[in-house]
């Protein structure tokens, strides 16, 4: 049976990826998951300079979900390439194609910053693809602002396109009126793929303290509670664009992943579910395989977009 899928010119061994910010650099999960069993993993948002992120508290648990306001804390692209990539490479087996893919989420406050990160990652051959994050709700400048205006989104994507010659995925924000219009704009600007959705903007209040739970007042909602919204958006986008769509949002089981594939996704990213079960990604791969066997499906691509 074939689980291999293509994202642009990048072949994945299977359609299961991890969502940026929920899987660290992969190595944090290597006691629980054989990273080589995954289609790939998207490592956390990387910026040109180190970022401290937002003050604590950065997290609030919500019904079947959570809000976060981490704010892209990371040590910067130079540190990532020099110190993290070698650790990741010790965990990856690359003897047989296609092997598990290393995808780096690229973030910034200005177009130039995205370009700088992308250019440096282009020179780091271990990085198979980038995911351009124009949808982070937790940074004051840039981030989601790029992802809510089709012209601004296109300008970032065009600039990064020139700096990064390999597979470029663009991660879309759900905090827009028409996500399909955003997808079309970044497709025309040269994206190889779109991933959606990033977190939904939300907030929580501590009624005893009469204060917001998060230091930033608002944050990004993720978890099983967002899945129906994400699924609807993937379905809308997949009908309109020709490039592969990666479904993200509340995926906890193989069944959830299959829903996204049937709605038109070529691959999926598993996010917050990694927190409740650090081994969940590998279970989802096995579950998809078991489903295909049970249904007599010989190629996962047969299921893609069967819900018209």
């Amino acid at each position: 049976m074939n689980l291999k899928v293509d994202i642009g010119n990048l072949e994945l061994p299977n359609p299961v990826l991890t969502a940026s910010g929920t899987f660290g650099y992969g190595i944090e999960f290597s006691d629980f998951v054989d990273l080589n069993a995954l289609g790939g993993f998207v490592v956390k948002g990387t910026t040109a300079a180190p970022r401290e992120g937002n003050p604590y508290p950065r997290m609030a648990e919500t019904p079947l979900g959570m809000l976060n306001a981490v704010g892209l804390q990371n040590k910067g692209v130079d540190y990532f390439i020099a110190h993290i990539v070698p650790q990741i490479e010790r965990k990856r087996r690359k003897e047989a194609e296609p092997f598990t893919r290393l995808i780096v989420n690229v973030s910034g406050s200005q177009v130039e910053e995205y370009v700088e990160v992308a250019r440096k990652l282009a020179d780091c051959k271990e990085v198979d693809a980038i995911e351009v994050n124009i949808s982070c709700p937790n940074v004051k400048q840039g981030g989601m602002a790029f992802g809510t205006d089709p012209r601004m989104a296109a300008s970032v994507v065009e600039a990064v396109r020139k700096a990064f010659p390999r597979c470029m995925i663009v991660k879309l924000s759900p905090n827009v009126t028409d996500i399909a219009a955003m997808a079309v704009a970044v497709e025309e600007a040269g994206a190889d793929s779109v991933s959606l959705i990033n977190t939904l903007l939300g907030m929580a209040i501590d009624v005893e303290k009469q204060k917001p739970v998060l230091s930033t007042v608002t944050g990004g909602l993720s978890g099983p509670c967002v899945k129906p919204v994400a699924l609807r958006m993937v379905w809308q986008v997949a009908r309109l664009v020709k490039i592969p769509v990666i479904g993200v949002g509340g995926i906890c089981t193989a069944g959830d992943a299959l829903e996204f594939i049937m709605a038109g996704a070529s691959a999926v990213e598993v996010g917050s579910a990694n927190f409740t079960d650090p081994s969940v990604t590998q279970k989802i791969v096995a579950g998809i395989e078991a489903y295909c066997n049970r249904k007599g499906i010989t190629d996962i691509r047969e299921l893609r977009g069967i819900i018209a």
Binding site: E28, F29, Y56, V70
Partner: peptide
Amino acid sequence: NTMACGLGACLCCVTASAEG
């Protein structure tokens, strides 16, 4: 501190160091 992953991946549980 309140935390989500417990594995150093999500960075929700941070505290400030003496150097900030």
